[in-house]
Design a protein around this nucleic acid. Structure first.
Lengths: 216, 216
DNA sequence: GCGTTGACTCAACAACCGTAGACCGTTGCG
DNA sequence: CGCAACGGTCTACGGTTGTTGAGTCAACGC
């Protein structure tokens, strides 16, 4: 019986917040493997939420465990240390195939589309925000953003653009996309945050076209 | 030399790094007022450097004091608490007059110019980077970025652009500028970081013109 | 049924951080 | 000169954090 009660009076009251998902992973009886998978997923989901909301430093392992309804030590058992937990939490999905197959005139809308669908999919959203939120203050988050999110896609786009300015233009496209993402979803600059996906696409599409295809 | 070694020894051994500016603020004898001003400035400079390099959480008051060559308690005496120190450190200069007087066709280059001159002026650079570095994880840094750096200038630009899309376009201009700044100076995306100021201005000027003045 | 494995908890450690208060020597003023 | 004010240091407290190791109990294979 894994009590869903308060951790009595040990260290300090781990009363973070939540009436959210207080029940421990398995009040129900389950086969070991299935149970393990569920706990792992529960921890990961809690970690993603907190890393996304609070950032790496302020999201404590104790708070993650409390949100997942388990003991802090269990988090260590699953992910080794806080860094490992973060590495498993922060994820960004890039559609390489779609991007490499896009023609020059399709690049702007493809990029915008990838961005929005990623940020508006509840499945991917928290992982992406966790990554973005920490990319300025956390080394490994920066690494993922720089390499997987920026450099790699940029290389493909640069090839599509061509010329000796291809890389620079692709880089500036990436910078612009990051800027819009941050402004809308992290900084929540009103003018951008309140705008609909369609508004932004309509305004930005010709602008980005002027960036990647200046001769058009 | 900006090595940021982590404290190796125990609590009492505050031997951070040395050789840097180890001599205390006044080995020399100075009038009280002058002496006070100098220590204050020294602390602020050390704080700016560390907040810019490491971010708010990882930049400890002990490390700031060590870099300034003084006692940690003195920092508290000058700035009240860590939050106060940060508020005094993180600064962004916006040239309101220049921006409000710019004609529509001048807006792009004015914005780019303000950005670069701010980031390349050693006097303002660290304060700006300290602000940017923490704007995703620190509430008061976010407040300054959102209000003073984004919203306020955007309102002026929106007025210059006019129309019912003015605010959105001004917001997206701001988002783009932030994106380029982060990519070049914080994330250090190679394609953008290695590009010269002139390269970026040349490529982006017509693009930003298409954003703020789509009818041109 | 029984021993073993594995999921999970409990209690604690060691380090570090921001901060407070007592203390010291010099400077400035009457 | 003498005394108050001030710049500055020293020491320590209370709290939080990541992390560990021993221990508990149900699930599993035989």
């Amino acid at each position: 019986m894994t009590t869903s009660s308060l951790p009595a009076g040990s260290d300090s009251a781990d009363r973070e917040q939540r009436g959210d998902l207080e029940q421990h992973v398995g009040t129900e009886r389950l086969p070991r493997e299935e149970r393990r998978r569920r706990t792992e997923a529960t921890i990961l989901e809690a970690a993603r939420e907190l890393f996304a909301e609070l950032g790496f430093e302020r999201a404590t392992i104790r708070a993650v465990a409390a949100r997942a309804g388990i003991d802090p030590a269990l988090v260590m058992q699953y992910y080794g240390n806080k860094e490992g937990l973060f590495a498993a939490s922060a994820r960004w999905h890039v559609d390489h195939k779609r991007l490499s197959e896009a023609s020059l005139s399709d690049v702007p809308l493809t990029a915008l589309d990838d961005l929005f669908s990623g940020m508006e999919d509840p499945e991917r959203r928290d992982g992406a925000i966790a990554l973005l939120r920490n990319c300025l203050t956390h080394e490994s988050a920066l690494g993922v953003i720089r390499d997987d999110v920026m450099c790699e896609p940029q290389a493909m786009i640069a090839k599509t653009i061509g010329g000796d300015e291809g890389e620079l233009r692709a880089g500036l496209l990436g910078a612009t996309m990051i800027g819009i993402t941050l402004a809308k979803y992290l900084l929540e600059i009103p003018a951008v945050a309140q705008a609909s996906r369609e508004d932004i696409e309509r305004v930005m599409a010709p602008v980005l076209t002027a960036l990647v295809n200046p001769d058009a």
